[in-house]
């Protein structure tokens, strides 16, 4: 037997928080990436995901600092802990990337998504759709005699639930922005 030991907790020397490094369980993480808003930066990030076979569940991007030309990209991705760590490291070494945060492990965060849902129908179904929309706090932003467009903001799971309920009531189209997320607190 080798006398070699490595003290427990040495993972604090790890560049990353390796919770269960050998886990094959798929985890979903929300990442925030602050980048220079230069041409091609989104293609670069997306190319990294497709080129290395990572998943993108949702992606949003917009310039959030107009003077500093910084954009915030929010990516929801799924993978084993090892893959998630790789994704963060790969993002972190890109030249236009300033910060990478994993909101899923860095404390509590809020995640919101906006969706527009078109529901067409008449009679009872139409009234039921409107009633449910009220419960879900969805706003009517357009209506004709045969249709509504509902706008709703919330956690992605809430939008999923609402869309599921609208389906039998005449949901014909849905547009979703993808997740925007921020860490809670200061």
């Amino acid at each position: 037997m080798s006398p070699l030991t490595i003290s427990q907790g040495s993972s604090k020397h790890s560049a990353y928080d390796l919770r269960d490094p050998y886990s094959e369980v798929q985890e979903t993480h929300t990442l925030t990436v602050i980048v220079d808003n230069e041409p091609g930066v989104l293609a670069r990030v997306i190319g990294l995901f497709s080129g290395r076979g990572y998943n993108i569940d949702s992606l949003t991007v917009a310039e959030v600092d107009h003077t500093g030309h910084r954009s915030r990209i929010t990516i929801v991705t799924t993978g084993t802990p090892q893959v998630i760590e790789q994704i963060k490291a790969q993002l972190g070494r890109m030249v236009p990337v300033h910060e990478v945060h994993d909101l899923t492990v860095e404390g509590a965060s809020v995640e919101r998504e906006l969706a527009l849902l078109k529901v067409t129908g008449k009679g009872e179904a139409r009234i039921e759709a409107l009633r449910l929309a009220e419960i879900f706090r969805a706003n009517v932003v357009d209506s004709t005699l045969q249709s509504f467009v509902f706008e709703m903001t919330g956690a992605p799971s809430k939008i999923d639930a609402f869309a599921e309920l609208m389906r039998p009531l005449g949901l014909t189209e849905i547009a979703r922005t993808g997740v925007a997320a921020l860490a809670r607190g200061v």
Binding site: I6, H13, S14, P21, Q86
Partner: peptide, 24 residues
């Protein structure tokens, strides 16, 4: 049966293929 240390300037090289015990 080895403990593995890995010295690399690129963080993405760490734990990409082989899990190491001590990344630097």
């Amino acid at each position: 049966n080895s403990k593995k240390a890995h010295i690399d300037i690129d963080p993405s090289s760490i734990n990409k293929v082989i899990r190491v015990d001590l990344p630097i």
